[in-house]
């Protein structure tokens, strides 16, 4: 009986917590991808980049993501907001 209750407790808490954890993981994923973009297309922001020539061949695949990234990264307020949201202020 005790075992069953503890099991149900685990299940319910997992269900309740999942969306929040999922959101954090998503944020982390986007963050990691932003860093990737910064390395790849940093020259758009004025950071010298030795591989900008080779970054070209990725464009056909990355095009859908790049627009949003550029907008986000150029907007200081949104960058700070996003960071803040990550820490649940």
């Amino acid at each position: 009986m005790k075992k069953t209750i503890s099991f149900l407790k685990d299940v319910f808490s997992a269900i309740l917590k999942a969306p929040a954890e999922n959101a954090i993981t998503r944020k982390e994923a986007f963050d990691a991808n932003d860093n990737f973009f910064l390395l790849l297309y940093g020259d758009l922001l004025g950071i010298p980049n030795p591989i900008s020539y080779y970054a070209l061949e990725l464009l056909p695949y990355l095009a859908p993501e790049i627009e949003g990234w550029e907008r986000r990264i150029q907007n200081r307020a949104s960058v700070i907001e996003e960071k803040a949201a990550q820490f649940n202020f």
């Binding site: 993981t25 990737f36 030795p50 591989i51």
Partner: peptide, 22 residues
């Protein structure tokens, strides 16, 4: 350039892995 590629691959892999978890 090889060093840059390594770093790019590592970052992208991490992002992809995290996204897959969701």
């Amino acid at each position: 350039l090889g060093a840059w590629m390594d770093s790019l691959i590592a970052r992208r892999s991490r992002a992809v892995k995290l996204l897959r978890m969701t």
